[in-house]
Write a protein that binds this DNA or RNA. Structure first.
Ligand SMILES: [Zn+2]
Length: 287
DNA sequence: CGAATTTGACCACT
DNA sequence: AGTGGTCAAATTCG
């Protein structure tokens, strides 16, 4: 019951984020149209962005709800059958996968946004991937040994836009998720002591350094984590750029590179637009 | 000292 | 043989 409300709230926020992104791009389009009347290429590109954004919103509204939820599949769709076939062939990772894209606020540290999703992760590997400039980091849930939580995720900085981090999640959290970040965030105004306050300020600074300066681009459209409702005031910091539910697909990183919506094309070939866009984002999010 | 990260080795799969 | 993913010893961190 509560889960349903939570998932609805989450979906609503994601839909709003997606629509918001559509609005952003539309503003870009209008601005470009005013300045350069005859640049059909740019217009077409931005229009495709808008189209993609609304398509994702529609997908969230229609089918995105039940896809990949870690319960027993009562209904057998085509995707389920394919998944079952492949799972019967090889009993490997039946864990579901999805991906996110984290947009790092420009001018901030290039430290990978690991704890931005509210879970505590533990790095267990790092690998250079062919054709990729930046290495890929492998993280697993901190409570793996203590509670047997098998959730993992991979984090890789995008080659095209270093401000974007591609995240691949594999498996859902089975651990009892007490969130140190949430506690630290909710806490800060209760106590006021002399020299402790400074330390608390520092601690708060650490927390917000991790969360505030990063923009998470959630694209799951899923209700896989019940954490974000407590993050309501941070929900606006996260913008949905794209959404991918990979029930079995292997390389989400490369496919993402092809399907990324905010590709560096408009930013590199048209820096003025990029500057305007970033200033807008800063005005809305960075404070 | 325990916990988290680093980093080369190892392993499974083409 | 090469690549992506994981392990684990060494090292750093708190
Ligand atoms: Zn977990």
């Amino acid at each position: 019951m509560e889960d349903a409300i939570i998932t609805l709230r989450k979906q609503k926020s994601e839909i709003i984020s997606e629509l918001w992104h559509g609005k952003e791009v539309t503003e870009q389009l209008i601005r470009t149209y005013d300045h350069h009347l005859h640049e059909s290429e740019t217009h077409q590109f931005l229009a495709s962005k808008i189209l993609s954004s609304f398509e994702k919103t529609l997908a969230m509204l229609s089918g995105g709800f039940m896809v990949g939820y870690p319960t027993q599949p009562t209904t057998t769709s085509l995707l389920d059958q394919d998944c079952m076939e492949q799972c019967s062939k090889k009993r490997k990772s039946s864990s579901l996968r999805w991906s996110e894209q984290v947009w790092v606020c420009p001018g901030r540290v290039e430290r990978p946004p690991v704890a931005v999703d509210g879970h505590s992760w533990r790095k267990y590997g790092q690998k250079q991937i062919l054709g990729s400039k930046f290495p890929r980091g492998y993280y697993r849930c901190t409570h793996r040994d203590s509670q047997g939580c098998l959730a993992t995720k991979q984090l890789q900085q995008s080659d095209n836009d270093p401000a974007i981090f591609l995240v691949n999640y594999r498996g859902t959290h089975t651990c009892s998720h007490l969130e140190p970040i949430m506690i630290s965030v909710e806490e800060p105004r209760d106590r006021k002591s002399d020299h402790h306050q400074q330390q608390e300020e520092i601690e708060r600074g650490k927390v917000f350094e991790e969360i505030d300066y990063y923009k998470l681009l959630k694209n799951t459209g899923e209700d896989l984590e019940d954490i974000f409702p407590s993050f309501n005031f941070l929900e606006s910091d996260y913008v949905t750029v794209s959404r991918m539910n990979n029930l079995e697909g292997g390389q989400s990183f490369q496919s993402d590179l092809n399907q990324i919506i905010s590709t560096p094309a408009d930013f590199v070939t048209n820096p003025s637009i990029g500057d305007l866009d970033f200033s807008n984002i800063d005005a809305y999010f960075c404070k």
